[in-house]
Simulated scan of single mutants.
Amino acid sequence: MPNIGDRLEEARKRQGVSIREASEATKIRGDLLLSLENNNFDFDLPDVYKRGFLKLYARYLKLDTDKIMADFEAAMLGRSKHKRSDSREFFGRMDLPERTTPLGSSESTPPFGDHEEPKNPESKPAERMEQQADTSLYWKVGIIFVAVFVIFSLLTLLVQSIFSSDPEETDPGTETTITDNSGGGPGNSAAANAPMNVVLIGLGDTSVVVNTVNGGERIREASGSLEAGEDIPFTANGPIMIVASNIENIAVRINGREYRADGMSGLGRWYFKETGPYNP
């Protein structure tokens, strides 16, 4: 009798696959796979399941499934004849005649009889398990794709909000409170056109964008990354808007007077003119 189990075990070890990995890939319990590799087909399941599991496992190991199934059927047929012989010996002298069927009838054995595949949906467990595995894979790929798309969209919106140069998009409900640490307060007069000597002071790492308010132009020499301990001096000819990704990590010095944000963190916008910070 061909040893099917030895071929299964040899193919699995040759590919470097463990029983656990094979079980996860085929969705067949590990103890059943071990029974197949031990050439033990007496586990308590209908024969149709045994055929389905063996065919699926042989296909997974890239073996000749037709040869494996043919050897399995031969082994099962030999085992069936052996059981009938044992049953006759059990009854001693009694002869148990076998039921004969006319040659060529629908009840005769192949190749003379006609056979139909069982219509029971449980007759093809291997194919049904493959379909379920494919459907699960499609769902997982779809969920991963949607999650990546949502994360990318959120990151794009965050970057656009940080580097937006339009002051009219400022949310009045999230204006930053400014504290004058030099003893002077923010001015409330109209924006002056006199040049302002401005210094951006890095209290921590952040990204900064400085735009003019009236013209809406970006001040290139003042925009970019600001590290802790770094100072960026520049001159502005009129009111400016400062956007920082971490508002708590910068201080602003205008004409020698320094301003900081108290109790604020994250993305924020400041508006400054010659007399100090103001709300547009």
Score class of each variant (00 low, 15 high):
Met69Val: 08
Asp71Lys: 08
Glu73His: 02
Ala75Gln: 12
Ala75Ile: 10
Leu77Glu: 05
Gly78Asn: 02
Arg79Cys: 05
Arg79Pro: 03
Lys81Met: 14
His82Gly: 06
Ser87Pro: 02
Phe90Ala: 10
Phe90Pro: 00
Phe91Thr: 01
Phe91Ala: 06
Arg93Gln: 11
Leu96Asn: 13
Leu96Gln: 14
Pro97Lys: 14
Glu98Gly: 04
Thr100Cys: 08
Thr100His: 09
Pro102Ile: 11
Glu107Phe: 14
Pro111Leu: 11
Phe112Pro: 01
Gly113His: 10
Gly113Trp: 05
His115Thr: 07
Glu117Ala: 07
Lys119Gly: 11
Asn120Lys: 03
Glu122Phe: 09
Ser123Tyr: 10
Lys124Ser: 15
Ala126Phe: 07
Glu130Leu: 07
Gln132Ala: 14
Asp134Gln: 15
Thr135Gln: 11
Ser136Asn: 13
Ser136His: 12
Leu137Trp: 12
Trp139Val: 15
Trp139Asn: 00
Lys140Tyr: 01
Val141Gln: 06
Ile143His: 13
Phe145Pro: 04
Phe145Thr: 09
Ala147Glu: 07
Val148His: 00
Leu154Trp: 02
Thr156Trp: 03
Leu157Cys: 12
Val159Cys: 12
Ser161Trp: 03
Ile162Pro: 04
Ile162Trp: 06
Ser164Trp: 04
Ser164Thr: 15
Ser164Leu: 14
Ser165Cys: 07
Asp171His: 11
Thr177His: 06
Thr177Val: 10
Thr179Phe: 02
Thr179Ile: 08
Gly183Ile: 03
Gly184Leu: 07
Gly185Trp: 07
Asn188Ala: 13
Asn188Gln: 12
Ala191Gly: 10
Met196Ala: 12
Leu200Ser: 01
Gly202Ile: 00
Gly202His: 01
Leu203His: 04
Asp205Cys: 06
Val208Cys: 05
Val209His: 05
Asn211Tyr: 07
Thr212Asp: 04
Val213Met: 12
Asn214Glu: 00
Gly216Pro: 03
Glu217Ile: 08
